[in-house]
Design a protein around this nucleic acid. Structure first.
Length: 103
DNA sequence: AACATGACCTCTC
DNA sequence: TGAGAGGCCATGT
């Protein structure tokens, strides 16, 4: 059921941050949560809404791991590789591709 | 108002 | 290095 508003304030904040992630860069659920002032799980719930045009695939699990369930995981990996992320098996170096806002 | 759920994270063995 | 258990906290019922 809709709550009246299409999305909550928290969701809008999450989307706002995710939208700012540049191509070829990634951010973990935990980091996004830090930025918007909430926990990692809430970020996952928010991204599950997945609005059109949102680069949701640039949000990954800690340590450069795809935490997305089902076939969506493959889609995400394809998107990331297309932006230059080089996977090492099923993981990639999160430290190397992490979006550093200060730069 | 209370309970169950979840695209997570961190600590321990 | 890898696997398991606990903790968190907003959302939906």
């Amino acid at each position: 059921m809709a709550t009246g508003r299409g999305q909550t304030t928290l969701e809008r904040r999450v989307y706002g941050v995710v939208r700012r992630i540049p191509s070829g860069r990634v951010l973990s659920y935990g980091d996004v949560g830090r930025l918007v002032g909430t926990g990692p799980r809430q970020v996952g719930v928010a991204l599950r809404r997945c609005p059109d045009g949102l680069p949701w695939y640039r949000v990954v699990g800690c340590g450069g791991v795809i935490r997305t369930p089902g076939e969506t995981a493959d889609v995400q990996r394809q998107h990331l590789m297309a932006e230059g992320v080089r996977f090492r098996g099923k993981r990639f170096s999160y430290a190397a591709y992490r979006w550093d806002q200060s730069r």
